[in-house]
């Protein structure tokens, strides 16, 4: 009876295999369908896994290291700027009142425009790419950190103040630990954003990096190589998110 089937479907027990195995099954099915499609469709549309594997084997992986280095340097700079800005605004209402409109203005400018500006303003490729990443990521850090600081409960603030800490003690013992969850969330967003953005910036204005590799593959009409670089990006992003998830589990182990 339809009603019974519906009920049975709604109350079906969850998969015995767990989310990882479910993902592998989905990806495996996709891979099989892809290979079947490659037998039927032209190679420039759906290259076979053999072609993609061959491209993967011949990629210049030093480009990966270059892109990662750019991302790491830019994220460190963005983090520092974001934290400094957030602290300044947290400690001074005047700084926040006059500074936040400028932050909002910067955030309103599309990343594409920043890339064009960087090409026009700066000669060096590294400076251009760093500028673009920082100008996009730092405001996100700043806004998130400031939100986190303002969100620290009044009860905890007054409890800590009752012990009369110095300013550095207050920051180190209360504020920074309290905003750790927000910092980690913001890092996840910005790492993902930075990896995508560096690829785009390299695509239009660099002679090294993953974006440059993609640009070269496009010029050579090598769809298999484009797919290969795309897979590399997916793996990098996945590993980065997994690393941050591991950090989160460790740093936030005090959570219920």
């Amino acid at each position: 009876m339809p009603g019974s089937r519906l009920e049975a479907a709604l109350h079906a027990s969850p998969s015995r295999f767990g989310p990882l195995r479910d993902s592998l099954i989905s990806f495996g099915a996709f891979a099989v369908l892809w290979q079947l499609a490659s037998f039927v469709l032209p190679a420039f549309m759906v290259p076979s896994w053999q072609r993609i594997a061959s491209s993967l084997a011949h990629l210049h992986y030093d480009n990966v290291l270059v892109s990662l280095a750019r991302v790491i340097v830019a994220l460190i700079a963005s983090f520092a700027l974001g934290m400094a800005g957030a602290l300044a605004m947290y400690l001074s209402e005047r700084v926040e009142r006059f500074g936040m409109p400028l932050v909002n203005l910067v955030m309103a400018v599309p990343a594409t425009c920043w890339i064009v500006f960087s090409i026009l303003w700066f000669k060096g490729v590294e400076l251009r790419i760093c500028f673009v990443l920082v100008v996009v990521c730092a405001p996100i850090f700043l806004v998130d950190f400031l939100d986190g600081m303002r969100g620290v409960s009044r009860d905890l603030r007054s409890m800590v103040w009752s012990f009369r800490p110095g300013l550095i003690q207050y920051l180190v013992k209360l504020l920074f630990p309290a905003i750790t969850p927000i910092v980690l969330t913001s890092l996840k967003i910005n790492v993902s954003q930075a990896i995508r953005l560096v690829t785009f910036a390299e695509l239009v204005g660099a002679v090294s990096g993953i974006g440059y590799g993609l640009s070269t593959a496009q010029e050579m009409f090598s769809v298999a190589e484009v797919f290969a670089w795309t897979l590399v990006l997916i793996v990098i992003l996945t590993l980065a998110m997994e690393l941050l998830a591991h950090m989160e589990r460790r740093l936030l182990r005090w959570r219920a």
């Binding site: 905890l156 409890m159 012990f163 013992k173 630990p177 750790t180 936030l252 005090w254």
Partner: peptide, 12 residues
Amino acid sequence: AGIFQEDRLLPW
């Protein structure tokens, strides 16, 4: 020193 309503312990 103060003892407050609710414990106000630092959860971390």
